[in-house]
Computed example of a mutant assay.
Amino acid sequence: MRRPVTVLGALALVLAGAGTASAEPPLEVTEQITDAAGLLGTGAPAAEQAVADLAAEDDLDLYAVLVPSFDGADPGEWAQDTARQSGLDETDVLLAVAAGESAYEYGYWVADDFPLSEVDLDRAVTAEVEPRLAAGDRSGAVVALASQLQDLAATEEEAAQQEAPWSASTIILIIGGVAVVLLAAHLLSRRRSSTTRS
Protein backbone atom coordinates (compact mmCIF):
# COMPACT_ATOMS: atom_id res chain seq x y z
CA MET A 1 0.00 0.00 0.00
CA ARG A 2 1.18 3.53 -0.67
CA ARG A 3 2.09 5.57 2.39
CA PRO A 4 -1.12 7.08 3.80
CA VAL A 5 -1.09 10.84 4.22
CA THR A 6 -1.90 12.38 7.58
CA VAL A 7 -2.73 16.00 8.43
CA LEU A 8 -3.77 17.38 11.80
CA GLY A 9 -5.84 20.52 12.00
CA ALA A 10 -5.04 23.43 14.29
CA LEU A 11 -6.68 22.00 17.42
CA ALA A 12 -6.88 18.35 16.41
CA LEU A 13 -4.48 17.17 19.09
CA VAL A 14 -6.70 18.71 21.75
CA LEU A 15 -9.71 16.99 20.27
CA ALA A 16 -7.91 13.65 20.10
CA GLY A 17 -6.73 13.94 23.68
CA ALA A 18 -10.17 14.76 24.99
CA GLY A 19 -11.85 11.82 23.27
CA THR A 20 -15.49 11.63 22.23
CA ALA A 21 -18.38 9.22 22.43
CA SER A 22 -18.83 9.68 18.68
CA ALA A 23 -15.45 8.21 17.73
CA GLU A 24 -15.54 5.76 14.83
CA PRO A 25 -13.22 2.80 14.18
CA PRO A 26 -12.12 2.11 10.57
CA LEU A 27 -15.11 0.83 8.64
CA GLU A 28 -16.18 -0.80 5.40
CA VAL A 29 -17.61 1.80 3.05
CA THR A 30 -20.22 0.81 0.50
CA GLU A 31 -21.05 4.26 -0.87
CA GLN A 32 -18.85 7.03 -2.18
CA ILE A 33 -20.04 9.44 0.50
CA THR A 34 -20.23 8.14 4.08
CA ASP A 35 -21.48 10.83 6.45
CA ALA A 36 -23.67 9.34 9.15
CA ALA A 37 -23.14 12.37 11.40
CA GLY A 38 -24.29 14.83 8.72
CA LEU A 39 -21.00 16.78 8.72
CA LEU A 40 -21.48 17.83 5.08
CA GLY A 41 -24.68 19.66 5.96
CA THR A 42 -26.46 21.32 3.05
CA GLY A 43 -23.39 20.77 0.86
CA ALA A 44 -23.97 17.01 0.68
CA PRO A 45 -25.71 17.08 -2.76
CA ALA A 46 -22.82 19.05 -4.29
CA ALA A 47 -20.28 16.58 -2.89
CA GLU A 48 -22.29 13.61 -4.16
CA GLN A 49 -22.57 15.15 -7.63
CA ALA A 50 -18.85 15.91 -7.75
CA VAL A 51 -17.79 12.31 -7.01
CA ALA A 52 -20.40 10.99 -9.45
CA ASP A 53 -19.08 13.25 -12.22
CA LEU A 54 -15.51 12.16 -11.52
CA ALA A 55 -16.44 8.48 -11.78
CA ALA A 56 -18.39 9.02 -15.00
CA GLU A 57 -15.79 11.15 -16.79
CA ASP A 58 -12.45 9.78 -15.61
CA ASP A 59 -13.07 6.26 -14.25
CA LEU A 60 -11.76 7.32 -10.85
CA ASP A 61 -13.75 6.71 -7.68
CA LEU A 62 -13.43 9.17 -4.81
CA TYR A 63 -14.67 7.89 -1.46
CA ALA A 64 -15.20 10.49 1.27
CA VAL A 65 -15.72 9.31 4.84
CA LEU A 66 -16.62 11.89 7.47
CA VAL A 67 -16.79 11.05 11.15
CA PRO A 68 -16.76 13.12 14.36
CA SER A 69 -13.47 11.61 15.58
CA PHE A 70 -10.79 9.02 14.81
CA ASP A 71 -10.58 8.41 18.60
CA GLY A 72 -6.86 9.17 18.73
CA ALA A 73 -5.94 6.95 15.77
CA ASP A 74 -3.52 8.27 13.15
CA PRO A 75 -5.73 9.68 10.34
CA GLY A 76 -3.60 8.20 7.56
CA GLU A 77 -3.62 4.76 9.13
CA TRP A 78 -7.36 5.08 9.76
CA ALA A 79 -7.86 5.88 6.06
CA GLN A 80 -5.63 2.97 5.02
CA ASP A 81 -7.46 0.50 7.27
CA THR A 82 -10.82 1.70 5.95
CA ALA A 83 -9.62 1.35 2.34
CA ARG A 84 -8.39 -2.16 3.06
CA GLN A 85 -11.64 -3.21 4.72
CA SER A 86 -13.57 -1.74 1.80
CA GLY A 87 -11.54 -3.55 -0.88
CA LEU A 88 -10.59 -0.35 -2.70
CA ASP A 89 -8.26 -0.67 -5.69
CA GLU A 90 -5.85 1.30 -7.88
CA THR A 91 -8.47 3.64 -9.35
CA ASP A 92 -9.88 4.64 -5.95
CA VAL A 93 -9.09 7.55 -3.63
CA LEU A 94 -10.23 7.61 -0.01
CA LEU A 95 -10.47 10.89 1.88
CA ALA A 96 -11.10 10.46 5.62
CA VAL A 97 -12.11 13.50 7.67
CA ALA A 98 -12.77 13.78 11.39
CA ALA A 99 -14.31 17.13 12.26
CA GLY A 100 -15.41 18.67 15.53
CA GLU A 101 -16.61 22.16 16.28
CA SER A 102 -13.15 23.68 16.56
CA ALA A 103 -10.78 21.11 15.05
CA TYR A 104 -10.28 18.74 12.19
CA GLU A 105 -8.03 15.89 11.15
CA TYR A 106 -7.78 14.23 7.80
CA GLY A 107 -5.85 11.61 5.92
CA TYR A 108 -6.16 10.14 2.47
CA TRP A 109 -5.21 6.89 0.80
CA VAL A 110 -4.39 5.75 -2.71
CA ALA A 111 -2.89 2.44 -3.86
CA ASP A 112 0.74 1.99 -4.92
CA ASP A 113 -0.30 1.73 -8.57
CA PHE A 114 -2.67 4.70 -8.56
CA PRO A 115 -2.48 6.08 -12.13
CA LEU A 116 -1.93 9.75 -11.25
CA SER A 117 1.18 11.48 -9.89
CA GLU A 118 1.53 11.22 -6.10
CA VAL A 119 3.46 14.50 -6.00
CA ASP A 120 0.74 16.34 -7.93
CA LEU A 121 -1.97 14.79 -5.77
CA ASP A 122 -0.19 15.83 -2.57
CA ARG A 123 0.15 19.36 -3.92
CA ALA A 124 -3.52 19.53 -4.90
CA VAL A 125 -4.69 18.31 -1.49
CA THR A 126 -2.47 20.80 0.34
CA ALA A 127 -3.49 23.73 -1.85
CA GLU A 128 -7.19 23.04 -2.38
CA VAL A 129 -8.55 20.58 0.15
CA GLU A 130 -6.83 21.50 3.39
CA PRO A 131 -7.77 25.22 3.33
CA ARG A 132 -11.43 24.33 2.90
CA LEU A 133 -11.34 21.90 5.79
CA ALA A 134 -9.63 24.54 7.91
CA ALA A 135 -12.48 26.91 7.07
CA GLY A 136 -15.09 24.30 8.00
CA ASP A 137 -16.19 23.83 4.38
CA ARG A 138 -16.23 20.03 4.32
CA SER A 139 -18.40 19.65 1.24
CA GLY A 140 -16.21 22.18 -0.54
CA ALA A 141 -13.18 20.06 0.33
CA VAL A 142 -14.75 16.99 -1.29
CA VAL A 143 -15.79 18.97 -4.38
CA ALA A 144 -12.31 20.50 -4.63
CA LEU A 145 -10.60 17.10 -4.45
CA ALA A 146 -12.89 15.68 -7.15
CA SER A 147 -12.14 18.71 -9.34
CA GLN A 148 -8.39 18.40 -8.79
CA LEU A 149 -8.49 14.71 -9.68
CA GLN A 150 -10.29 15.57 -12.92
CA ASP A 151 -7.64 18.17 -13.73
CA LEU A 152 -4.81 15.75 -12.98
CA ALA A 153 -6.42 13.06 -15.14
CA ALA A 154 -6.76 15.53 -18.02
CA THR A 155 -3.11 16.54 -17.66
CA GLU A 156 -1.97 12.91 -17.67
CA GLU A 157 -4.08 12.19 -20.76
CA GLU A 158 -2.67 15.21 -22.59
CA ALA A 159 0.88 14.17 -21.75
CA ALA A 160 0.20 10.65 -23.01
CA GLN A 161 -1.17 12.00 -26.28
CA GLN A 162 1.92 14.15 -26.76
CA GLU A 163 4.15 11.13 -26.24
CA ALA A 164 2.11 9.08 -28.74
CA PRO A 165 0.45 11.65 -31.03
CA TRP A 166 -0.85 9.09 -33.52
CA SER A 167 -3.97 7.26 -32.49
CA ALA A 168 -4.69 3.68 -33.56
CA SER A 169 -7.17 4.89 -36.17
CA THR A 170 -4.60 7.32 -37.59
CA ILE A 171 -2.00 4.55 -37.86
CA ILE A 172 -4.52 2.29 -39.63
CA LEU A 173 -5.33 5.04 -42.12
CA ILE A 174 -1.64 5.64 -42.81
CA ILE A 175 -0.94 1.94 -43.33
CA GLY A 176 -3.98 1.68 -45.57
CA GLY A 177 -2.82 4.67 -47.60
CA VAL A 178 0.66 3.22 -48.03
CA ALA A 179 -0.82 -0.11 -49.11
CA VAL A 180 -2.99 1.62 -51.75
CA VAL A 181 0.02 3.53 -53.10
CA LEU A 182 2.12 0.37 -53.29
CA LEU A 183 -0.67 -1.56 -55.00
CA ALA A 184 -1.18 1.23 -57.55
CA ALA A 185 2.56 1.37 -58.23
CA HIS A 186 2.66 -2.41 -58.68
CA LEU A 187 -0.27 -2.40 -61.11
CA LEU A 188 1.22 0.50 -63.06
CA SER A 189 4.54 -1.32 -63.25
CA ARG A 190 2.86 -4.45 -64.60
CA ARG A 191 0.92 -2.39 -67.13
CA ARG A 192 4.09 -0.73 -68.39
CA SER A 193 5.85 -4.09 -68.60
CA SER A 194 2.98 -5.52 -70.64
CA THR A 195 3.02 -2.54 -73.02
CA THR A 196 6.77 -2.85 -73.56
CA ARG A 197 6.50 -6.54 -74.54
CA SER A 198 3.80 -5.70 -77.10
Rank of each mutant, 00 (worst) to 15 (best):
Q150I: 00
L95T: 05
A37M: 06
A46E: 10
D137M: 01
E130Q: 14
V181C: 10
D35L: 06
T126S: 10
A52P: 06
A56Y: 03
R2Q: 08
Y108E: 07
R3P: 13
W109M: 04
Q49M: 06
A179P: 05
A64S: 02
R84H: 11
A10H: 10
D59F: 15
A55F: 15
I174L: 15
D81K: 13
L94D: 12
R191H: 15
A159R: 11
L39E: 07
S69M: 08
L40W: 01
L15G: 14
S139T: 11
D61A: 13
L27H: 10
Q32R: 09
T155I: 01
P4E: 02
A47V: 02
V29A: 09
A16N: 12
G9H: 03
V142I: 03
E48F: 10
L8M: 15
L40N: 02
T82W: 10
L116D: 00
L60M: 06
R132V: 00
D53F: 09
T20N: 05
S198R: 13
P131T: 01
Q32V: 05
A179G: 08
G100T: 00
T34I: 03
V14C: 06
A146W: 14
E24P: 02
T196H: 08
V67A: 10
D81C: 05
V142N: 01
V51P: 07
A146P: 02
A160F: 04
P68L: 12
A159D: 01
R132E: 04
A146T: 14
D89V: 14
G87V: 12
L8P: 06
W78V: 00
E130C: 03
A46D: 08
D137V: 15
D35A: 14
W109H: 05
W109D: 02
L60K: 00
Y106E: 04
P131L: 05
